[in-house]
């Protein structure tokens, strides 16, 4: 009897879903190209991940290459620099997360408070612009600006009576340089999401707060921030999903033999050890390893968010 009821319920549920889809069939039809895109370009190629357990050979192809079990991982974990690279990647990612993530939120709040629309738009455009400069160009500018001999920054320091600082030659400056340049380049772009979320806040709340005598800071604290809280939390969870990824270009461009002890991260290491030598299986193994770490971190963050009564991914 219970089984029959459950089957009936399930059938009813399916029926409702189907009739919902039928009712909104054109929306679902519009979804189709995106779905096909994801299946073809993101899911189908995933079978290639099996090469981490294979000695990939062009001649034999992905399926035909010889199985070597966990050999690629054994090789990875036994490389002398591996743990140093792991540490560098983690530290840099965490610094990036905790130092640059809040900047976009703060910047978005500040932009939202600009009363003059024209001025707000100009400011917004100006803070977005660095996002479109490639790291190659930006890296070149940084190396030139920070040069102890010819750089503008050290010229200023010299004129102020300070000793020039060899920013690119000292490992202790590498991480701050990466974080500061990341913030400068990407913080503006990161505000888009929060500004969009802010437009969804009911303006009557602000009017009511004004009637109650709330000042700007109070409105920001008690209306705007809670209004975009779920966006912030979701964005944070998603950021933890790419925790081990530091990007290749920026690090590679700022890296040199003098700061290599702190600048070698998975992206640059994989490039040199794997792709440079045509070891595709090994490179994929590194990619899989970092993805698994990121997935675990994302799951933990999502769990904490859910437990804390916040919005979560599922």
């Amino acid at each position: 009897m219970q089984k029959e009821n459950a089957a009936l319920l399930s059938k009813e549920k399916w029926g409702k879903t189907l009739s919902y889809i039928k009712r909104n069939k054109y929306y679902y039809l519009l979804l189709l190209p995106g779905l096909i895109y994801y299946i073809i370009f993101h899911y189908v190629p995933m079978y290639g991940i099996i090469i981490v357990f294979k000695d990939f050979s062009f001649k034999k192809g992905i399926l035909g290459s010889d199985w070597i079990g966990l050999e690629n991982f054994r090789y990875l974990f036994h490389l002398s620099e591996f743990w140093n690279v792991f540490r560098n990647s983690l530290i840099l990612s965490l610094l990036r997360l905790f130092a640059s993530f809040p900047v976009s939120v703060i910047l978005a709040l500040m932009l939202n408070e600009i009363g003059n629309r024209k001025y707000q738009r100009i400011t917004q455009t100006l803070v977005y612009l660095p996002h479109f400069i490639s790291w190659v160009v930006l890296g070149g500018i940084m190396v030139n600006f920070l040069s102890p001999t010819w750089g503008v920054i050290n010229q200023v320091l010299k004129n102020l009576g300070f000793t020039p600082i060899f920013f690119m030659g000292k490992p202790e400056y590498f991480r701050p340089l990466v974080i500061i340049s990341s913030i400068w380049k990407e913080a503006g772009w990161g505000t888009i999401l929060y500004l969009a979320a802010m437009t969804g806040i009911d303006t009557e709340l602000y009017d009511a707060a004004s009637v109650d005598g709330a000042n700007r800071i109070q409105k920001m604290r008690y209306i705007t921030l809670p209004g975009i809280r779920s966006t912030i939390v979701l964005s944070f969870i998603l950021r933890t999903g790419s925790l081990m990824s530091n990007g290749f270009e920026q690090i590679y461009i700022l890296q040199n033999s003098q700061n290599i002890s702190v600048s070698e991260v998975f992206e640059t290491y994989t490039y040199k050890m794997g792709l440079g030598n045509g070891r595709y299986s090994f490179s994929t193994a590194v990619g899989l390893f970092t993805t698994v770490i990121s997935l675990i971190m994302m799951l933990i963050t999502n769990y904490i968010a859910k437990k804390g009564g916040e919005e979560s991914l599922w």
């Binding site: 490389l79 002398s80 620099e81 030659g169 033999s257 003098q258 290599i260 040199k272 050890m273 440079g276 030598n277 070891r279």
Partner: peptide
């Protein structure tokens, strides 16, 4: 050898440069 020890080959280059720069 270079394919099996990419990190060592890389390290030699870094050690040479660090020796030259006095590190």
């Amino acid at each position: 050898f270079t394919a099996d020890n990419p990190d060592l080959v890389d390290r030699l280059t870094n050690m040479e440069e660090n020796f030259v720069t006095g590190n």
